[in-house]
Structures are given as structure tokens and as C-alpha cells.
């Protein structure tokens, strides 16, 4: 996925000017940076939900895991997943796909619950399930694990990894958590205000082999920039 010559202004503030970036297919890219540097804006430019000038080569379908789960409150967990699958005409195929993903996120037993009946972690898993049930080659995530306690975050990251390994989609995610980025991403980018990429590193160690304490050098470099 390629972005060329992107310009985005909010009022008097220039978020991006003549900004170019390319994301490799099938890889996970983590974007870090100080608040207000344009990370979420970049995700919104990629999915086309904000006005901008420039070129974006984007796929026809994009999954998005938002900061707030954005589950439709009047639909059950099952129906929330079905809501995004209207392009699948075959009901059996639709049901099969939803059941499979719900089982992977361990929410099959909770499929008839409404969002108001879900805990924060369950709602986040439902949001993940919706993103993965939707057949999109590109997935955007905006601080998807924010606000979760340590053990719940680990569980949900493990769920994400299981789902990702199944499809190997192109993933671009925004986070403030360096450890999260080092644990999940193939590539780490740090953005600065004005839309400049001030750090861009590809991690060579396989995700499955990564351990806490790895990449101390990268961590120090990133902390130095932030």
C-alpha cells in the first residue's frame, strides 16, 4: 500500500505536507510518536475517512479496529459480526466464518450477548473478531490494546497473533506502547509533528521467537527520539 504526496491541514496546523510512505504487503507496521503528531490522522487518510490531497493506493476493503470498540449496541456480538458481512450472500458460509472467528477469540459462548453485557476485554475481542471476519487485505488499528490491564492485554495480543497468522494481512497500527510495537511489529516507524518519519526500522527476529528484553537497543533509540 502506497501513499504519495499527502497533504493534510486541520485549520492552521499542517499535519502532513508532501508525505510519502509505503507499507509492505503482509507485514505488521507499528507507528509511534508524540500525541498530536498525526498517527491517527494517517490511519484516517489511509481509510479515506478524512479529506486530504495526494494519492493513496488502497485496497477495496479495509478492516479497522478503533480506539473505542464501536460495537452497535442494539446488535448481539454475533449480529455485530454479521453486520459487516452483507457482501456474503450464502448464509451458511457467513455463519461458518463468524463461528470460526468467534471460537478463535473465545467468544462463541457469548455470541448472543449485547455489548452492554460485555466486559471491556470481551468488547475488545468482539471488535477484533469483527475486523478479522471482514475479508480485507488491509487492517488498521488505533491503539487497540489501550486501557487493558497487563494480563488481559497479553491474552488479547495472543488472540490477535493467532488471527493474524491465519490470514497474514497487511497491518498498520498506532500505539504509544514501545513494548507492544517491539513484540508485534515487523517494522517500527516513529512520526514527528509535521508528518516527518524520524525513525524507521525493520525487525529481523521472527515474532514467535521474540522475548521480553529483546531489542533493548531499539527501545533506547526510540525513547531517545520520543
Amino acid at each position: 500500500m502506497i501513499l504519495k504526496n499527502i497533504k493534510k491541514i486541520y485549520g492552521d496546523k499542517v499535519i502532513f505536507d508532501n508525505f510519502d510512505i509505503e507499507f509492505e504487503q503482509g507485514k505488521i507496521t507499528a507507528m509511534l510518536g508524540r500525541s498530536g503528531c498525526g498517527k491517527t490522522t494517517l490511519l484516517n487518510v489511509i481509510c479515506g475517512s478524512v479529506e486530504y490531497t495526494g494519492e493513496v493506493e488502497r485496497p477495496d476493503k479495509i478492516s479497522y479496529i478503533f480506539q473505542s470498540q464501536r460495537l452497535v449496541p442494539n446488535l448481539t456480538v454475533y449480529k455485530n459480526l454479521e453486520y459487516v458481512l452483507s457482501y456474503i450472500r450464502d448464509k451458511n458460509e457467513k455463519n461458518k466464518r463468524i463461528d470460526e472467528v468467534l471460537k478463535m477469540v473465545e467468544m462463541y459462548e457469548d455470541r448472543d450477548k449485547y455489548p452492554s453485557e460485555l466486559s471491556g476485554g470481551m468488547a475488545q475481542r468482539a471488535s477484533l473478531a469483527r475486523a478479522f471476519v471482514y475479508d480485507a487485505p488491509l487492517m488498521l488499528m488505533d491503539e487497540p490494546f489501550k486501557g487493558l490491564d497487563v494480563s488481559l492485554k497479553k491474552r488479547i495480543i495472543d488472540v490477535f497473533k493467532r488471527l493474524y497468522e491465519r490470514d497474514k494481512r497487511t497491518v498498520v497500527f498506532v500505539t504509544h506502547d514501545i513494548d507492544e510495537a517491539l513484540f508485534l511489529a515487523d517494522r517500527i516507524i516513529v512520526l514527528e509533528e509535521g508528518g516527518k518519519v524520524v525513525y524507521d526500522k525493520t525487525l529481523s527476529v521472527d515474532r514467535a521467537d521474540r522475548k521480553a528484553g529483546d531489542f533493548a537497543e531499539f527501545k533506547n533509540e526510540i525513547y531517545g527520539i520520543l
Binding site: 475517512s49 476493503k61 479497522y64 478503533f66 452497535v72
Partner: peptide
């Protein structure tokens, strides 16, 4: 508005948005 934006991102057809989102909301 966030649900409307989510529906647009996932390309949910207008008819489905009306009957499954707007009217119940």
C-alpha cells in the same frame, strides 16, 4: 457518529445501516 463512521469504513450498505443502526438507535 462513531458508529456511522464504522459503518462507512466497513462499507455496510445503506439499507442495512437504516434498519440495523439508525432505526434501532
Amino acid at each position: 457518529k462513531e458508529l456511522i463512521e464504522m459503518s462507512r469504513t466497513y462499507k455496510v450498505p445503506i439499507k442495512n445501516r437504516i434498519f440495523q443502526l439508525y432505526l434501532p438507535q
